[in-house]
Simulated assay, not measured.
Amino acid sequence: MSTARTVVVTGAAGGIGSEIVNRFLAHGDTVVASDISPEALDTWRARWDSGASGGQHPSLHTVPADISSEQSVAALAQVVQQSLGTVDVLINNAGHFPQTAFEEMSADEWRQVIDVNLTGTFLMIRAFVPLMKASGHGRIVNIGSGSVFSGTPMQSHYVASKGGVMGLTHVLARELGGYGITVNLITPGLTVTPAAAESVKLFEAGSPEN
Rank of each mutant, 00 (worst) to 15 (best):
I181Q: 06
I114H: 10
D66E: 13
V21H: 07
P98C: 10
D35E: 03
E175A: 07
P208K: 07
I140F: 03
S2Q: 13
E109C: 02
D88H: 15
V171M: 05
A77C: 05
A197Q: 14
G51F: 00
S34R: 06
S72W: 08
E209V: 10
L190H: 03
M166K: 11
G189P: 10
H157N: 13
H27Q: 11
A74R: 14
P38G: 01
V200L: 14
A13Q: 02
H157M: 08
N210M: 07
G189W: 11
T3Q: 12
N92L: 07
W110A: 08
T62Q: 01
D115C: 09
N92E: 12
H61M: 12
H137C: 02
A46C: 00
R126G: 05
P188G: 00
N142C: 06
R23N: 09
E70S: 15
N22A: 01
G138I: 03
A40E: 11
V129Q: 00
W44G: 01
V165C: 09
K162L: 02
A196S: 13
R139Q: 12
G164H: 11
F128W: 11
S207H: 14
G180A: 12
D35V: 01
V87R: 02
F102H: 00
P58W: 04
T191D: 05
R111W: 04
I125D: 10
S156F: 02
T182S: 12
A26F: 01
G177K: 05
K133I: 08
R111N: 15
T191C: 05
T152Q: 12
A134Q: 15
P130V: 10
V148A: 01
A94E: 09
R23W: 02
A205T: 11
P153Q: 08
T191A: 06
G28Y: 13
N22S: 11
I114G: 02
Y158M: 07
P58Q: 12
T169S: 02
P153F: 05
Q82D: 15
Q155H: 07
V129Y: 00
L190A: 11
G54K: 06
F203N: 09
I143H: 06
K133N: 09
Q112E: 14
V80A: 03
T3M: 09
V148D: 04
A75Q: 14
E204H: 02
I186G: 02
I36D: 01
V73S: 03
G11R: 12
G138K: 04
V165G: 10
T100Q: 14
F97G: 13
S145M: 09
V31P: 07
W48S: 03
A33C: 01
